[in-house]
Amino acid sequence: MPAFSLDPVQRAWCEELRALARDRLAPLAEQGEPGRVNRPLVAALGELGLLKRLFEAGAFELCLLRESLAYACTEAETALALQGLGTSPVVRAGTDAQRARWLPEVTAGRAVAAFALSEPGAGSDAGALALRADRDGDGWRLSGEKCWISNAPEADFYSVFARTCEGAGPRGITAFLVPADRPGLTGSALEMLSPHPIGALAFDGVPVGPEDVLGEPGRGFGVAMDTLNLFRPSVGAFAVGMAQAALDATLAHTERRTAFGGPLKDLQSVAHTAAEMATRTEAARLLVYAAACAYDEGDPEVPRRSAMAKLLATETAQYVVDAAVQAHGAAALRRGHLLEHLYREVRAPRIYEGATEVQRTIVAKELYAARAAATASAARPEAEEAVR
């Protein structure tokens, strides 16, 4: 691929996705109930082959998919992304039996998945999980809580991360595939600003066995981070899709709306703001694409690039949507307006899958680690020469 310039086939696919989202998926989204899983929408994603494509796609194609859907229907994009996030641990670390049981159901749009990592006291600090997995014969009993879990409590299964070894930090976490009908597992919905379903889960001695482990015992943190490294750039793509929709709406509005004797676009303050919105959106898009390509190529700098992409894209989308609301005035705050919808949607991505502050921490840590490695590498030849 050239330097992040889409080829004709990719452009055509993105246009096709926008059209599908606008014509087929948006009407189903409008019929959904805020805060509830929209199963007809999920089923349509399966029927259109988008869920199957989701699991076949590399990181770059995943970003194109999410950006295109987000432009025309954020609910469809989010429903698809949550299926990917909840199921990715099964795809990447699950057994043949786990995959055979759940992947056909997910790709067909019949089963709803959820990624259960965050807890009341462990959101950004994922290594501080308190959900206990206590030994019970050959298996474990899960006890504790999860919170801020998308698709909870209505998911059909959860990728759950629990502590199997106290005092071991991230090394003491194991990932489990937990069907929703396990005894002792209950949940409740949380009323949130964003319209997609989010809930809390309570684990009261929920039984899990060796057949439920995703990957290996004690290696669950790696499963979680591998999933997040894949999805963080695509969260940025979701943000870019929203930013582009807000920018296009602003350009159309400021062309036709008159004030002070002419169209708004002729006011320098408006035109310069539009230029800033466009520049920031394109910069975010290019960083997202670069991070996705790095992931697909197995670049060792994926954690830093993924964090940078999510950081810049989500912060950019917040700025662009806010600027679009300002350009539209009071009409943009009316319930049902595109920008009123985007204004509610755009806030959450700056928090979930690692808040902005966490992304900055990751970037800084990776930068200093790379510098330390380079310094050590440069010092070795000097030490060897001194010995000789």
Rank of each mutant, 00 (worst) to 15 (best):
G94R: 11
V321H: 01
E340P: 02
E345R: 11
R11T: 12
N151L: 03
E297N: 04
L339D: 00
G84N: 02
Y158W: 05
S234V: 11
P89A: 11
S377E: 13
E282L: 09
A79D: 06
E276C: 07
A126M: 10
E366A: 12
E30K: 15
E16C: 08
A237Y: 03
A114R: 03
N151K: 11
A364R: 13
A43Y: 08
A133L: 04
M1R: 12
H337Y: 05
L286I: 00
R334C: 08
V320E: 09
A43F: 08
A243P: 08
Y71G: 03
E255D: 15
F157L: 07
G329Q: 01
R36V: 10
A97K: 12
G49N: 07
T174C: 05
D212F: 02
L251R: 15
S150F: 13
N38A: 15
E67C: 02
P233A: 00
L64F: 00
A259E: 06
R163K: 14
C165S: 14
I362W: 04
L185E: 07
A29D: 13
D322G: 14
T164V: 15
D181G: 08
A374G: 13
A114H: 02
T107Y: 02
E77A: 04
Q31M: 15
V106F: 11
A130V: 04
N151Q: 15
P153T: 13
L48K: 09
G199P: 02
R371A: 15
L214Q: 05
G32Y: 11
V160K: 12
A72D: 03
A100V: 12
E297P: 00
L267H: 13
L214H: 05
E75F: 00
F221W: 11
R219I: 01
A12R: 14
A162T: 09
A383N: 08
A100H: 03
A12E: 15
Y71M: 06
P179W: 06
I198Q: 15
L201I: 08
L131V: 09
H196M: 13
V37Y: 05
A309P: 03
G184P: 09
A237V: 04
S88M: 10
